[in-house]
Design a protein around this nucleic acid. Sequence first.
DNA 1: TATGAATGAGCATTCATTCAT
DNA 2: TATGAATGAATGCTCATTCAT
Lengths: 206, 206, 206, 206
Amino acid sequence: MGIVERKERQKESLRQDILDASRDILLAEGYAKLSMRGIAERIEYSPTTIYSYFKNKDEILYHLCEEALERQFEVIHAAGRDEPSPLLRLRAALHAYIDFGLCEPGRYQILYMADISPYVSMASILEKGSPAFKLRELICHRVNEALIGSECARDMESVSQALWAHCHGIVSLLIGRPDFPWVERERLIETGLDIVLNGLVSPKNR
Amino acid sequence: MGIVERKERQKESLRQDILDASRDILLAEGYAKLSMRGIAERIEYSPTTIYSYFKNKDEILYHLCEEALERQFEVIHAAGRDEPSPLLRLRAALHAYIDFGLCEPGRYQILYMADISPYVSMASILEKGSPAFKLRELICHRVNEALIGSECARDMESVSQALWAHCHGIVSLLIGRPDFPWVERERLIETGLDIVLNGLVSPKNR
Amino acid sequence: MGIVERKERQKESLRQDILDASRDILLAEGYAKLSMRGIAERIEYSPTTIYSYFKNKDEILYHLCEEALERQFEVIHAAGRDEPSPLLRLRAALHAYIDFGLCEPGRYQILYMADISPYVSMASILEKGSPAFKLRELICHRVNEALIGSECARDMESVSQALWAHCHGIVSLLIGRPDFPWVERERLIETGLDIVLNGLVSPKNR
Amino acid sequence: MGIVERKERQKESLRQDILDASRDILLAEGYAKLSMRGIAERIEYSPTTIYSYFKNKDEILYHLCEEALERQFEVIHAAGRDEPSPLLRLRAALHAYIDFGLCEPGRYQILYMADISPYVSMASILEKGSPAFKLRELICHRVNEALIGSECARDMESVSQALWAHCHGIVSLLIGRPDFPWVERERLIETGLDIVLNGLVSPKNR
DNA sequence: TATGAATGAGCATTCATTCAT
DNA sequence: TATGAATGAATGCTCATTCAT
């Protein structure tokens, strides 16, 4: 029935509004300031209403994480699949990682910066098939591809983690320190990726 | 007079105790759990007493930041001054940055990760002579040295920021995600620095 | 028509389900835990539905009382009518009173123990023809019979009340203090009735 | 110092006020209506203040019970020690039990009627030396005395429990049903005790 | 300097109830 | 008849802060 459907859509929509509002608050005011009352105010409903959509505050945070993880995986997974060389495919993935963080700072913060992190439990990262697991796998795969092509011997795991850290550093500082006199964003990102990928494949000359 | 001096020392000491206690709580239990009561309990004074030393909670956080910045500058400033080559001096500085973060996670978190960060206001970073300013200057200087020596043309500002981001990424993930199955710490750090410094000075081959 | 009848039966049945569920909760979890939500959950209907059958929570409690009173009257009224002597008839009534309390602790609690008691308003007890009134009359009648048979002069009203209190004491403590190291239940009851009825008819020897 | 003393007295006094207010509310409005806010309103302090006197609501209830138990023991223990015969000493104890309940209905209710009872845990009743334990011992002792004097063989434990129940029945109904058309209080009590003690010592004639 | 007493504002959560459908 | 959506009021509790001493 059309009516049922519409109602369902409305319900789903409010549910999403709650998640959006929460994410916004989290981004704008930090975890400490995320309160059921605050969310309610933002969505212009009574606090009680939230409880018919989520069992409690924890459940909101949990879904926020889940959803952010899925989103991130989708975005990065789609990136650079058609690039001609392994190195470019890796570069595209890293760039996508950074872009996701900058386009969706709320979601990124939830996943990697906030006190909430426990909700993105390591369990879920290590759990096969979870978005977190798949993301990690994807990065490792692309690093591997790139390393094979280059003549230099490096430990794939170490490299993957270092590259992740590099990208995370850029995203988290840009998000967390918007007032710093950054050089133009894209230039910073490109410079970083240049250095790091160049360093990855050039023969060592320490 | 000795008496006045001792009193002063005592006063200074309690003030320091408050800062230490706050930092400890921050590190151990997170920003959300940092309460005046909690601090008071830890230093074994009444909550009210704290107000004789700091106007309010915000001021504690502010001083926590100041102090952490100073410490960080000292440590990094001292690092690698005797290294023979510009590149090694830069590497030493970056390594010191990371080490500071890992050895003093409480302080690092305060400066670069927590919800508190706003207290390290940009004002203070841009203010000439502040530790933050001097730290930035130091990094830029070493980057410059290294760039001059290499044949490749890169924008010093962009490089500095990218390197900072790289190091920050490593520190903040290691601190914030202790449960992740990291490779051995020193290996991760060295791999990261290898890549990044190698990439900095090799001729580009993108 | 059969249909109308069935509908009526259904309606009556759900109404009864609500009362049953309420009584169960009351007994099992106490007055504080009796909530419309809880009742609804138990009968597997929405909370709103309950309001089609009862105006509000108070009305449920009111009907719970009414119904419990009727039940109690029936049980006690039926007890001991065939006993040969007045004293045994009285004893049977008192025993039935206690048994009712122990067999139907939910109902007894509602009537005589809970915070709810105000719902068994005195009005209803004094109102001729109400179960409460009839119960009181029944007890008085049996006490009277017994007193007439005995040589001792006692005020019927006082005795009735004292006997009621005695029985209530036994029931309410057994129900309310299940963990106390009671002697065996039947022994306690019999001892109590022995003493009290013996005392009623023996010549005073204070 | 006088000042310290006065402050101590003040503090103790407010603490007592909180307990008194709680007891009053409990008596007047029932357990369900006992709230921190309600107490605060009654003592004309902010709710927060209560928390510097009691850790939480449970602790208030706990102290309410403790204090009521002690009070009850004192009163009953003092009663009838000089009576010439065992039977009269027993009668005095029972009468004192009833009197305590009627003079301190708040305290009595807390101990024997309210949902709070778990706080007078059985543990405490069975724990040697606790007021509850001593009270039970006292009653048993007096019952024993009385039984020895009489020619009838009865089980002391059963009798003690039956007598307790009898008294509890009288108190709890008088407190819980103030609107019932009771005979004059003292007459009811005396009639009850007459019957029960007469029945205790008369030769059985069932 | 240090404290105890006290408070107002805030929090997550639960509940009885209403309303439109 | 039955429901889902929504709410206002209440609850226990914690916190930063102030004030008088």
